[in-house]
């Protein structure tokens, strides 16, 4: 096991297009670091740079004490799980698992022992003689994971490993993966475009967009104090409402000298009952009601635009009805209108 450090890494393609710009982040020894971002943000490229499948234009990548910039993939002591598993279709599960040790000339007895141990850990012992096409999605994913585990690498790189599975299986494997991470104590970098996966899985998360790091923090902090408007809108579902409302400025206690603001309120932070005297008020007409079971999603038109609120209403609501909602001042996020950076409101 080893720590992974990425310092000021840039990746510029031959055509001059910058995929990653000045990206710095690190995964501590044994940490599960999640890199999350919309598609095309450069997260997969980052993983390929760490794996050595592509070379960095500038910057340093260190695994443990070693700078690995110039090392080929096989000398970096990393393992990677690919989005589409990348299992060798002409080999059985056993051969797939054994591939890495076999090409490195590991003695047969030791190889066999390792393969059976890892297969048992993942619950795929019964599948060893099957070909990948004879496996279910979950079994394929476990095989791909097993292949990565077999060599006991310093760093695991997981590139959207669950995105090809259906939702219930994804949740199940996500829990398994978290448990596996704890039992292996391995350093893992997990790339995903799914912010809920990032929130539930990571010890820390890196939010990446447009090839730049937007925020690095624990999931709780990223959710509660998003560093900028992008992160605020990307993390959390349903997404945050953004309002440009001068009328909030008084209540919000904007710091002196601050320019125009944009306010953000998460849908679940609305309340149908007034709390304290500090609450913001918002009146709107109900355009659409959608039941989520115990909660209701209301789409309101407000004079400042459309707002989505998730409530637990105490009475029946009708479309077309005017409704008044309150937001506790502490739930208000504020962002600079021009730069998008988070603005801390006075307590």
């Amino acid at each position: 096991m080893a720590a992974l450090e990425i310092e000021h890494v840039e990746k510029i393609l031959r055509g001059g297009q910058a995929v990653l710009r000045d990206v710095s982040c690190s995964a501590r020894d044994g940490e599960l670091l999640v890199v999350v971002g919309p598609s095309g943000c450069g997260k997969s490229t980052l993983l390929r740079l760490v794996a050595g499948l592509e070379s960095v234009t500038r910057g340093v990548i260190r695994i443990g004490e070693r700078t690995v910039n110039e090392l080929p993939p096989q000398q970096r002591d990393v393992a990677m799980v690919f989005q589409n598993h990348a299992l060798y279709p002409h080999m059985t599960v056993y051969e797939n698992l054994a591939f890495g040790l076999r090409v490195r000339g590991t003695p047969r007895a030791r190889l066999d022992q390792r393969v059976r141990l890892v297969a048992a850990q993942l619950g795929i012992e019964a599948m060893l003689k099957r070909f990948p096409r004879e496996l279910s999605g979950g079994q394929r994913q476990r095989t791909a994971l097993g292949r990565a585990m077999l060599r006991n690498p310093s760093v695991f790189l997981l590139d959207e490993p669950l995105s090809s599975l259906d939702a219930p299986l994804r949740a199940e494997l996500r829990r398994e993966l978290a448990a596996l991470h704890r039992s292996l104590g391995a350093t893992m970098v997990y790339v995903t475009h799914d912010q809920s996966e990032a929130l539930s899985l990571g010890q820390r998360m890196v939010v990446l967009a447009g090839g730049r790091v937007q925020q690095i923090d624990t999931p709780a902090h990223v959710f509660q104090r998003p560093a900028n408007r992008f992160v605020a809108g990307f993390v959390g579902w349903p997404p945050m409402n953004f309002l440009t409302a001068d009328s909030f400025d008084d209540v919000a206690r904007v710091p002196a000298g601050q320019g125009a603001l944009e306010y953000g309120v998460r849908p679940e932070c609305f309340s149908a009952r007034p709390g304290g005297g500090d609450d913001l008020q918002l009146t709107g007409r109900i355009e659409r009601i959608e039941s989520q079971g115990s909660e209701w999603d209301l789409e309101l038109t407000h004079r400042l635009g459309r707002v989505l609120a998730r409530l637990r209403p105490e009475r029946t609501l009708e479309v077309g009805e005017q409704i008044r909602l309150w937001v506790a001042r502490g739930h208000l996020h504020a962002f600079d209108l021009t730069s998008g950076a988070r603005v801390e409101l006075k307590p």
Partner: peptide, 12 residues
């Protein structure tokens, strides 16, 4: 991806 995987696993 198969070649990428093989490279990482040490296949020349």
């Amino acid at each position: 991806e198969l070649y990428d995987a093989a490279r990482i696993e040490g296949a020349g």
